Simulated assay, not measured.
Amino acid sequence: MRRVFRHIAIDLSWFISWSIIAFTAHVALLWAAIPFSFILRAFTDFPALNQDEWSVIVALAQVALFWLILRVPGLIEFFNDIELGARQPSQRELLQIEPAFEYLQEIADAKAVKLPHIVWRVIDRRNYNACAFGRNRIALFQGALFDTKFRKRGLEELAALMAHEIGHLRHWDTVHTCITTALLWPFLLLVKLNNQVCNLPLIGLFFSFIVLPCNLIIMIATKATNLTSRMAEYRADEFAQKLLGKERMCEVFSSLCEERSGTDILAHYLNSHPPTELRRNNLLQRSDYRPQFNAPPASDLIDRFQKH
């Protein structure tokens, strides 16, 4: 019952956030269309439209752009790569990534768990961490690749790090973010336009009067999902535990380090990730998932992982 409630709470928070973003962006775009309608009517034969007709036009434009962003393969992921500084892994890094994922795939096959197709990325940071984004991307931090390469059970640790991020992909956590991005882009174009015309008399004041309050509402809506994002982290942890067991995941948590800003109740609830120690404690309190399938990696995988 707790698991069902968690799924409902996560999806409901995203749906509420999307609804607020889409409606607020629609209102802002509709009001921003008023000056353009006067310009079009003054210099062209563009017919006069009432508010309902403009509302339909704006809604169609939002839907068209939303559909385009989500349908073009790799479009959102391309911009995510730029934002995160994620790059394609080198051949040497692939020789480390592939054995770890192959080991994970063997366990998933034994437990009848389907893993998604993954496009691997690497972020050049020293942190022992990873992140999932887009529809099929997992980026491993260079620090995680370096640290696990020299550990006795580094292949299993890297596989556990991957398993957590795969949990996000399987539960559509990253797809939820893609949908939010697609809903935001039309409004972000309006924000860019506002930055260009803000110094113009009257028009700049009109745009700022519309854009700034809507921007505040949208910012609050995007942050609202943080209230359930910690549930999503626990859910991804439990998926990884299902594959690799409690011991491997606890080793990963022992290697993670974090610096959390703020100690008040607001900082606690608006942080997207729960404290690592609480995540580790959550797994320790749970029964393990069918540990009889958690065989150690084959020697050839370990050789490929460490000797490159």
Rank of each mutant, 00 (worst) to 15 (best):
R2S: 03
F5N: 04
A9I: 01
D11R: 14
S17N: 12
I20K: 10
A25Y: 11
V27S: 03
V27W: 13
V27Y: 10
W31Y: 14
A32N: 09
I34D: 06
L40V: 05
R41Q: 13
Q51S: 10
A59G: 10
W67L: 12
G74V: 04
I76Q: 12
I76F: 12
N80C: 11
D81C: 03
R87M: 08
S90Q: 06
Q91Y: 09
L94A: 05
I97M: 07
I97Q: 05
E98W: 15
F101K: 07
F101A: 07
E102S: 14
E106Y: 11
K111H: 07
I118M: 07
R121I: 00
D124Q: 15
G143Q: 01
A144V: 03
L145K: 08
F146N: 13
K149V: 04
K149M: 03
A160C: 03
A160F: 01
H164G: 02
R170V: 11
W172T: 04
I179K: 13
A182G: 03
L183K: 02
F187C: 07
F187H: 12
K192M: 09
N199M: 09
I218P: 01
A224T: 02
L227N: 11
L227M: 14
R230N: 06
A232W: 05
D237N: 04
L243Q: 02
E247P: 01
R248D: 04
C250V: 11
E251W: 13
E251P: 05
E259P: 05
S261E: 10
T263A: 06
D264R: 04
A267I: 06
Q285G: 09
R286M: 10
A295Q: 13
A295C: 05
A298G: 07
I302G: 04
